[in-house]
Design a protein around this nucleic acid. Structure first.
Length: 465
RNA sequence: GGCGGCGUAGCCAAGUGGUAAGGCAGAGGACUGCAAAUUCUCCAUCCCCGGUUCGAAUCCGGGCGCCGCCUCCA
């Protein structure tokens, strides 16, 4: 039985979807004013694993991720550069989707954009106004949290505590109460705006997620995710708005991932520990190693990224890929052999443990240990030469089954240029003639090009890096 | 100040009452022309102090240390 840790009550609960066999999933997406950083991708990877595992478990998932394409920083940049907000965000939207592909993140069913859902947001404001949740001040519309009795249900932040915080900053917009949040922001001079019944302005950030999730998933849906920093105030405010409108329970399961740290500290540009996916790739890290590093840690634990930990993840990932390669070679060899009962038992155990651990709030670290245990035991059996092609095929199917969720076993295009191909041939000839000096010379040369050679009984095998 | 989380081997990281998964790194052995890959062996008593219990990394209390949120930052 699948269980999730629900932020709302801080407990693990069995997952019961609203509709049998289906799962509605909303995940807070990027603000597209810059390249997403690796911390953002931790959240998207966690959500990808969640979505993949739900599908693995037979759920039909409707996954919606928003693109925040209008907010203060975007508007500021547009004003500074003289471009439209759409011109400012377009390149980063493209980059975002490229990065998703790089990390083998499955596409959501919908990527609604804030700018295309202004009407839905206005409609919510209208309803909230009619129900007495809002007030207007200087052209902006605010949500009065006092009117929503359950405010604080998700985060545990009690309204009366918010004010005691030392860092309340409300100088930009005047509110009745610093704890209230804005639904509609009056435009300032030179800013992008929409002409509406509430005046010229733009939507507040929290509103878009409520409007779009309700539009695509309904007033009630199963799962809503984001990074831990979204718990308060963003998701707390979403609940207030959404439930204020509908009068119904908005979301049944709130899942949040902890932050990714770099060298033990929160990423920030000023500390110089700020990485985009692209900058890590430039340092030579393999995208699948980055993916494995992130998904093989538990999503509710802080994750500390260091160059060493990425390197270690690469080694671990290589172990998986080396084994997979070995299995594929065995399949291709067309060897007949009686079925290995031991291997069958290990395969069954691997899948059983994998499911058991993933069912337990997506315990990917333990799920991966089930995989590694299998790889070790299977390698041992393969060493004995006792596995036939047919059973190797079954082993490959098991790996693929696991990878439906992990998504780390994406292979590189297996292309070698002619020069490298010739060098490998030349080295094989040299080895035959026992000219090991030349053979080693070539191996070192190729290593310098990032190509690693392994001499196996079946012949030479190569891989990158 | 308020809310929440964490502290397990050199590093990463599971494990929430019965005598510590897994990965990386390291040492040694097997295999190999040498490597690589693979495999075998070795490598912790769980921040500190009390308490509960037949029994605690796991529960309770108190410390110490670290982190996040309370700013439209996943």
């Amino acid at each position: 039985m699948l269980h999730f840790h629900n932020t709302e009550n801080n407990r693990k609960e069995p997952f019961k979807p609203l509709v049998e066999g289906k799962a509605g999933l909303y995940t807070c997406g990027p603000t597209v004013y810059d390249y997403a950083h690796i911390g953002n991708f931790r959240a998207y990877l966690f959500e990808d694993v969640l979505r993949r595992y739900l599908e693995f478990r037979g759920y039909e998932v409707n996954h919606v991720m928003n693109l925040t394409d209008v907010e203060d920083k975007i508007i500021r940049r547009a004003r500074e550069t003289g471009k439209t907000i759409y011109e400012c965000t377009a390149p980063y939207i493209d980059a975002f989707f490229e990065d998703l592909d790089t990390l083998n993140i499955k596409r959501a069913n919908q990527y609604p954009r804030a700018t295309e859902h202004i009407e839905e947001m206005l409609s919510m404001i209208r309803t909230l106004r009619d129900k007495g949740f809002t007030y207007e001040k200087d052209g902006s519309i605010y949500f009065r949290i006092r009117e929503f009795k359950e405010y604080g249900r998700l985060s545990g932040v009690r309204p009366e505590d918010v004010l005691s915080g030392a860092r309340i900053d409300s100088d930009e917009y005047e509110k009745d109460d610093a704890r209230d949040f804005v639904l509609w922001k009056a435009k300032k001079e030179g800013e992008h705006f929409w002409e509406t019944e509430f005046g010229e302005g733009r939507p507040g950030w929290h509103l878009e997620c409520s409007a779009m999730s309700i539009k695509y998933l309904g007033e009630q849906f199963d799962i809503h995710c984001g990074g831990e920093d979204n718990i308060f105030p963003h998701h707390e405010n979403e609940i207030a708005q959404s439930e204020g409108c509908s009068g119904k329970k908005f979301v049944n399961y709130w899942l949040h991932c902890r932050h990714l740290l770099v060298d033990g500290e929160k990423m920030s540009k000023s500390k110089g520990n700020f990485f985009t996916l692209r900058s890590l790739l430039d340092k030579g890290f393999h995208p699948m190693a980055i993916r494995f590093f992130i998904i093989s840690n538990h999503y509710r634990s802080p994750l500390n990224l260091t160059m060493d930990s990425l390197q270690a993840a690469h080694s671990a990932w290589s172990r998986i890929m080396d084994f997979r390669q070995r299995v594929k070679e065995r399949i291709a060899s067309n060897v007949e052999a009686p079925k290995q009962i031991d291997l069958q038992r290990e395969m069954d155990a691997c899948l059983t443990r994998f499911i058991e651990h993933m069912d337990d709030d997506l315990d990917t670290p333990r799920a991966s240990s089930a995989l590694f245990d299998f790889i070790r035991d299977a390698n041992k059996i393969f060493d004995s030469e006792a596995v036939g092609s047919k059973q190797a095929q079954e082993a490959l199917e098991l790996l693929d089954r696991v990878d439906e969720t992990f998504g780390v076993m994406k292979e590189d295009e297996a292309l070698l240029d002619d020069e490298v191909d010739q060098l490998i041939q030349e080295r094989q000839d040299a080895r035959k003639n026992r000219n090991f000096a030349r053979a080693d010379e070539i191996r070192d040369l190729l290593a310098g090009k990032g190509i690693i050679l392994e001499d196996t009984r079946e012949g030479v095998r190569w891989k990158r890096r």
